[in-house]
C-alpha cells in the first residue's frame, strides 16, 4: 500500500508551523499511524515528496499498544492514539497528522501535557489515608483507574481551555476512584474541588466519551461521581 502522509511540523515552540508531505510504501497490512511515523523516521535520509531532505519527525510513543497515551495526536483532524489508528481504515488518499491543539507544542507532534497532572494536583487527587471502599464498587474503581492521561477528551471538549477553571474528564476519571475510596470525613476537599473544576463546567454532551481511546465508560463514572460530590449534598441523604 502507498500512502501520502501530511504532517504539521514545527521545529520548536517559537517557530512557525508548516505542512510537509511524505510518501510511504508498506506491505504491513495492519500498519498504524505510529508505524508510518517510525517507518518515515527510519528512512536515511528522510526525504519529503518534493525531494527535500528533512529532520526526523518528533513525536512521543512508548507502549505502541494503546496502553500509555503517549502518542495522542490529531489524525485526519480527529484526536486519537497513533498506535491504534490503522492507515487502511482512514478514508481518502492523504493522511494528516497534527499535534493536539490544546497543549503547547514542543516540536512537531510532541506537545506538553503537563497541565493534566497540574490539574490533578489542584483538585487534591490523592488519598490522605487508607482506602475505604466496598467490594460492590470494584467496577467503578477499576474503570476509573484506566485513564491514560492522553488528553484526547480535553482536545474534543468544547468547554476545556487549558487556562480555564474547567478540568474536563481527564480529571474526573481519576477523581471517580478517590471519591469512592476516601473515608467520608476526608472527602470534603476533593468534593469541593470537584464541584468547582469538574461539575460546574461540563455541558454533558459526552463527545469525550466517544473519543476516549481507552473506551472508558465516562458517563457511568460521571453519574457516580456527581452523585457523591454534588447531589448527595443537595439531597442530604445517602445515594
Amino acid at each position: 500500500m502507498k500512502y501520502k502522509i501530511k504532517i504539521l511540523r514545527q521545529k520548536s515552540r517559537k517557530e512557525t508551523p508548516y505542512w510537509q508531505s511524505f510518501s510511504l510504501e508498506t506491505q504491513l497490512e495492519n500498519a498504524t499511524a505510529a508505524t508510518a511515523l517510525s517507518l518515515l523516521n527510519s528512512m536515511d535520509p528522510l526525504t519529503d515528496t518534493d525531494g527535500n531532505i528533512s529532520d526526523k519527525i518528533i513525536w512521543e510513543c512508548s507502549c505502541l499498544q494503546k496502553k500509555c497515551g503517549a502518542c495522542a495526536m490529531l489524525i485526519n483532524g480527529r484526536p486519537g492514539l497513533a498506535c491504534s489508528v490503522r492507515l487502511s481504515e482512514l478514508k481518502g488518499g492523504e493522511i494528516t497528522l497534527q499535534p493536539l491543539k490544546k497543549f503547547p507544542v514542543i516540536a512537531d507532534l510532541m506537545v506538553d501535557r503537563g497541565i493534566l497532572s497540574e490539574n490533578l494536583k489542584t483538585i487534591n487527587a490523592w488519598l490522605s489515608s487508607d482506602a475505604f471502599a466496598s467490594e460492590s464498587k470494584n467496577d467503578i474503581l477499576y474503570e476509573s483507574s484506566r485513564c491514560l492521561q492522553c488528553g484526547c477528551c480535553l482536545e474534543i471538549c468544547p468547554n476545556f481551555d487549558p487556562d480555564g477553571h474547567f478540568f474536563g474528564m481527564a480529571s474526573m476519571v481519576p477523581a471517580a476512584r478517590l471519591l469512592e475510596e476516601l473515608p467520608e470525613k476526608e472527602k470534603t476537599e476533593l468534593k469541593k474541588q470537584y464541584r468547582r473544576h469538574i461539575f460546574g463546567g461540563c455541558g454533558k454532551s459526552l463527545s469525550c466519551r466517544h473519543i476516549c481511546p481507552a473506551g472508558i465508560d465516562i458517563e457511568e463514572l460521571l453519574v457516580n461521581s456527581n452523585a457523591i460530590a454534588v447531589w448527595k449534598r443537595f439531597l442530604g441523604r445517602k445515594i
Binding site: E60, S62, C63, Q65, C68, G69, A70, L148, Q149
Partner: peptide, 11 residues
C-alpha cells in the same frame, strides 16, 4: 523521559 503514566509498568 516520560511521565509515569507512560512507563512500561502500566503494560
Amino acid at each position: 523521559v516520560l511521565p509515569s503514566e507512560r512507563a512500561q509498568s502500566v503494560m
